[in-house]
Design a protein around this nucleic acid. Structure first.
Lengths: 130, 130
DNA sequence: TGCGTACTACGAGAGTTATCGTACAAGCCG
DNA sequence: CGGCTTGTACGATAACTCTCGTAGTACGCA
């Protein structure tokens, strides 16, 4: 059997994702209650639809990064698919908006406000003011 | 011996609350990521401004109840004051709305949706007709 | 084919959390 | 005054989480 079948790319390694109805609010909140994961989600929401794990500059080891991405995926916050050796990450915005309308936006807005208030260095466009 | 109370004020026992600017989003999310605490907050939001700890029917011991209320208070989600032997609990809706506009509503709405989806027969608060 | 890159799995250690029971303090009421 | 209700404090324990390093797998490229 010669492996002439390209297999439509990324069919071999599938990652388990919770179905929309399996996503629990508590799980989402817990996933987002970690500063690192909240930051990941913020970048994911701000930058693009798909980012590979290695494009994040996180102050932790690779193992820990993998761990955090898995927590986010298993909570139903992000979607992960393999693309060659890279694993692309995308927010499950549609599913979350369907389950909890407005929640993700509020969460991201809250995170942006807090970042602007405390750091001021992150999140472009928002100029404090109080 | 005349027991002249050293400290007057209706409540000699004061509880420490975080100032608004000390409230962290991650802390709030973490506090709300526990099913028990999420339920407490839902009841608090639905029923009234002030409820004593004993008015909640939680499936845990008194010690654990105290613990959860403290977590909520220290995260800045609720406000607690003594009233005789009872400790009254109230949501810090104004502070939270000021810090994270719309977040609390989204959260409560999301929790209500999930409760309706999964249980349908949720105990907390008959919020006046439905 | 062999090498480098990207990510995972496993095991471990430190820290945190949830839960309990018991013992205790503060206020109300008869 | 004594007792009841309400909630706290203090251990203790089990479970979970975050973190790491090392070893290993999957894939692309020369």
């Amino acid at each position: 059997m010669i492996a002439t079948a390209p297999v439509a790319a990324a069919g071999s390694r599938d990652l388990p994702h919770p179905a929309p109805e399996e996503i629990r609010l508590e799980g989402v909140l817990h996933a987002l209650s970690d500063p690192l994961r909240l930051q990941i989600v913020r970048e994911l929401a701000a930058d693009a639809d798909e980012l590979s794990c290695s494009q994040f500059e996180l102050p932790v080891s690779k193992s820990t990064t993998t761990h955090h991405f898995r927590v986010l995926r298993e909570a139903g916050v992000i979607r992960q698919i393999y693309r060659g050796t890279a694993k692309m990450n995308g927010l499950r915005r549609d599913d979350l908006d369907d389950l909890f309308p407005g929640l993700l936006d509020s969460l991201l807005d809250a995170a942006a406000r807090q970042a602007a208030r405390h750091g001021g260095a992150e999140t472009p466009g928002h100029d404090g003011g109080e």
